[in-house]
């Protein structure tokens, strides 16, 4: 009965729909105005799609990821997942959602409990769902295989692994329940360059095989460009540019995205010199435009 509403919709529809979401964090102290981390943000994610979310520190990109995960207090707007409102769920209903929406955090050093073995970490989401121990063990080995780690690592502790390997373990944990959406919060920022490239390939490969969708949060336009079908750029708690990945990351239209694009140094001395000149020209232009706008107003 409840299924008919969903099946009437076209086959290709929205997996996650974020509409005018605001998030306020209370500030300590009597009668202090709360801090508004998100000021009415809207985007949508389709099944099997990667949506990149770019911004600098304090832009609210991580907060949006946490709001989708139910870890940030949503004070306005709506987040619908498969046509059901999830922004104000209680803890119990949230737990039921955990097989649908998962997470990979930035810091592979603190996202794994240092006192649990890899098997315990990966089996945990399964055992709380009463999966028999034997089956869970089988699934753990399957997961390790999927992320390219030897199955002999089950009895080892996180500290015995390098940053890249730990991030693979965190990815395996996110995959344990076969989710449809994974929120990736700067998953490669703490990794070395070559490790970063391999982990990104892993993300891509998993998506092509399982059809999982990603909300991919990063400060790096290049990383986002590599992985995202569509890209949103955040600045001061708002989305300033939102559209096709290639266009936003290579031919940005919003002045902030343009600045962001030109600020990243190119690994080529000759082209970097040109980009530097271009950036200075743009800064000058934008400053003049601001001044004129101020004069008109």
């Amino acid at each position: 009965m409840s299924t008919s509403a969903v099946s009437e919709k076209p086959l290709v529809s929205t997996l996650l729909d974020v509409k005018d979401v605001t998030v306020d964090y209370p500030i300590k102290g009597f009668r202090k105005e709360p801090f508004r981390a998100l000021k009415g943000v809207s985007l949508d994610i389709r099944p099997g799609e990667t949506v990149g979310l770019v911004g600098e520190s304090g832009s609210g990109k991580t907060t949006l990821g946490r709001a989708v995960l139910g870890l940030a207090p949503v004070t306005g707007g709506s987040i619908t997942y498969r046509s059901q409102e999830i922004s104000q769920l209680g803890r119990k209903a949230r737990r039921a959602l955990s097989s649908e929406i998962q997470v990979v955090f930035q810091d592979p050093y603190t996202s794994l409990n240092p006192s649990l073995t890899i098997e315990q970490i990966l089996a945990e989401p399964l055992t709380v769902r009463n999966v028999p121990a034997k089956e869970a063990g089988k699934r753990v080995r399957e997961l390790l295989d999927q992320v390219g780690l030897p199955s002999g690592s089950v009895d080892r502790l996180p500290r015995e692994f390098s940053g890249g390997q730990r991030q693979r373990i965190a990815i395996a944990r996110a995959l344990a329940l076969d989710p449809r959406l994974i929120v990736c919060d700067e998953p490669v920022s703490a990794l070395d360059l070559s490790t970063q490239a391999r982990v990104l390939e892993l993300f891509k490969e998993i998506q092509e095989r399982t059809g999982v969708a990603y909300l991919f949060v990063s400060h790096d336009l290049e990383v986002v460009r590599h992985l995202s079908h569509r890209v949103a750029v955040m600045y001061h708690g708002e989305i300033v540019e939102w559209g096709d990945g290639d266009q936003v990351t290579a031919r940005p239209e919003h002045p902030y995205t343009q600045r962001l694009f030109l600020a990243a140094p190119v690994p080529d001395p000759v082209r970097q010199e040109q980009r530097r000149a271009e950036r200075r020209r743009l800064e000058l232009e934008q400053r003049e435009a601001d001044l004129q706008a101020g004069a008109v107003a």
């Binding site: 139910g70 949230r94 737990r95 955990s98 409990n113 769902r129």
Partner: peptide, 13 residues
């Protein structure tokens, strides 16, 4: 700690 957040997202009570 992030691993406590991860546990919450994993559906632990």
């Amino acid at each position: 700690e992030l691993y406590v957040d991860a546990a919450r997202v994993s559906g632990l009570s």
